[in-house]
Design a binder for these strands. Sequence first.
DNA 1: TTCTTATGCATTGTCGACATTCCACAATCA
DNA 2: TGATTGTGGAATGTCGACAATGCATAAGAA
Lengths: 231, 231
Amino acid sequence: MTNLKAAIPATQPHLIAPIENVPLRVQVADRLRGEILSGRLRPGTGLVETALAEQLNVSRAPIREAIQILENDGLVETIAYKGKRVKPLTAREVAETYSLREVFEVMAVTRILESGAPLDGLYQHCDEMTAAAKAGNYAALVAADEAFHHTLIRLADHDLLMASWRNLYMRIHQIMALRNRDEENLEEIAGNHPPIVQALADRDAERAMSLISEHTRILAAFDPDGIVQAL
Amino acid sequence: MTNLKAAIPATQPHLIAPIENVPLRVQVADRLRGEILSGRLRPGTGLVETALAEQLNVSRAPIREAIQILENDGLVETIAYKGKRVKPLTAREVAETYSLREVFEVMAVTRILESGAPLDGLYQHCDEMTAAAKAGNYAALVAADEAFHHTLIRLADHDLLMASWRNLYMRIHQIMALRNRDEENLEEIAGNHPPIVQALADRDAERAMSLISEHTRILAAFDPDGIVQAL
DNA sequence: TTCTTATGCATTGTCGACATTCCACAATCA
DNA sequence: TGATTGTGGAATGTCGACAATGCATAAGAA
């Protein structure tokens, strides 16, 4: 990891595009979160404050606060006076994550149908997913998938649901990054989404919810072996 | 607030019951959380690190970390270089809190009926609520109500659901504390619960879920005026 | 007066140093 | 040998001081 503070000179004059004044703890947290969610920092990896402070060239205070942010994201766990590490994933936690996501998305579908919100964006993200699947581009598929579900939740117009979903989806992001991507059928994943949109367009709550449930459960069942690490 | 560190002498010999070594940040966070959830620290109240540090006789570091914990609990918000305060409650947030709680509890009911878990404890908490309602003891009613719903969630055997529910219920706790308790019909609240247990005992998912929904919506509608504070 | 600019204050952000704790491992004794 | 005790290192926990920021308010010019 490269220096963080170097990017923000101490006495910078007001430029055209004034650099957002982001606290170091947030920069550090975003960076570490990215490392974890991308799978580069695997579950179980120890996080030593002094080492990180030296690597990132900041003091321990913002490191500590950043790690605490990640702890509250559920990505890191602390054992007092002993150490901090990337939270190991258990099979149970993976299953619970997906089952909760299912409930969130069913709630979103219910609210969307109740409010009659327009389905803007969903079609577009479906197309993106299909294209990514055909191109065999895993990263693009994941991004489009996230955009699709993010839009679905956004249409539910429920801030708390959105916040909870985002928190949950971080773990899903991590799980997907840790999976062996070769084992997944990209076309199938992409193909699961258009029927959901169609059911929403038809105002068919039952069908939409059952499709969502089925889709979620298929993804959850994709956990063959490697992800879960013993404590 | 009284001194925190005074309760834990620096060089205390090992006694029979060695005092749990709880980090100061956790002690501070628990204390402030209690103040907020009980309504003694009202939404909008400013939290100044230096003042708290002096009051509690600790340095600013644990205060900062404690406030960050509360921030991640959704109870406090920070504006960089400006200040921190107890997060104001909006009418929308109150409504969203209850609607999400409804979804959580419906999920719990579904899982309980699927797994056939025994309904231990629910009957007892119902009795406690009835007794508290008859005695006009609002605090006891709230405690029994929380115990009831906590048990309901616990029976669902879903750690992530439990964690999400606890986080959500904190806000409900706060809302209930801020309400004018005289306006509530204690007997009605207590009376809402036994039918839910009965429906569970009858394995009647539809009835249980609709009772839960109704109960939640009645509580949510209880927000007549006072709670929400303008920014 | 009225708008602009500067300056002081309150608050949070960051830092380096020291204190505390836990764990592992060696040293000691029965 | 086996258990107990002590000691050292590694990590987090806490502290006090200083830096950076934003806002309000006062000072000054048109």
